[in-house]
Amino acid sequence: MSSRERSRVVDAALRSLPSLAVFVVGLVVWEVWVNVRDVPAYLYPSASEVGSELLAEGPSLAADDLRWTMIEAVLGFLLGSFAAVLTAIVFVHAKFIERVLFPWAIVLQTVPIVAVAPLLTIWFGFTLQPKVIIAALICFFPVLVNTTKGFRAISSQALELMRILSATRWSIFWRLRVPSSLPYVFAGLKVASTLSVIGAIVAEFTGADRGIGFVIIQASYRLDTRLMFAGIALSSAAGVVFFNVIGALERLALRWPDARLEQ
C-alpha cells in the first residue's frame, strides 16, 4: 500500500468517526434506559444482552441462515437488475414499447410485495424461487428507472458527433449510451442492493425453513426478542456489506473525474 493510499484509508476512517460515535452513544442510551426503567427482559433486551446473544448465536446464524438469505438476495438482485437493464435497452430503442409498458412497470412497483409473497409461496412451496423472485421484483424498478434515464443522459451534440462519424446504432449504443449511463446504473444498483435483502427476508416470513427471516419469525412466536434483535442486526449488517461491495465495484468501473452521481 503506498503512503498516499494509506493516508486515504486513514482519512476515510476519520470521516466515519462521527457516525461510529452516534452508534456508540445509541448503544449506551439503550443500555442505560433498559436498566433504569427496569423493563421486562423478554420485551426489551438490553444492548449487552443482544451483544452476548450475537456472540453466542451469531457465527452459526451467519454460516447457515444469513448465508441462505444473502444467496436469495444476491440471486434476486442479479436477476432483477439484469431484467431491468434489458428492459431499459428496449425502452431506449423503441419509444412505443416504453409508452405501452412503462405504466405497467409503475403498477408492478405499487403492488405490495408483502401481499405477493404468500401467493408465490403457495405456488413454489418452501423453496428458493419465491425469495429470489420477490428480491428480483423489488430490485427491478429502481434499476429500470435509473438505467433508462442514464441511456438518455447524452447531449444532442454528442449524438450529432456520432452521426457526423456516420456511426451505427450499435456503435452509438456501446461507445456513447453505455458509458454515459454507467453512473446512473450504479446509483440504481446501490439502491437495489439494500432492497434485495429486505425482499428476501419478507419472502422468508411467508414460508421458509431457513434464513434470517425464518429465524426472526420463529423467535417472535417464542417471544425470544434477543434472537430477533440479533437477526435484525445481522441482516442489516449484511445489507451494508452488500451495498459497499456494489460501491467498490462502482469505484472500479467509474474512474473518470466526477463520474459518480451525488447520492
Binding site: 451534440q157 458527433l161 458509458p179 454515459s180 463520474a259
Partner: peptide
C-alpha cells in the same frame, strides 16, 4: 469534421 460550440468530449 464538425467542431461544436461545446467541446463534446467523452468524459470517460
Amino acid at each position: 469534421g464538425f467542431v461544436f460550440q461545446q467541446p463534446t468530449l467523452f468524459p470517460w
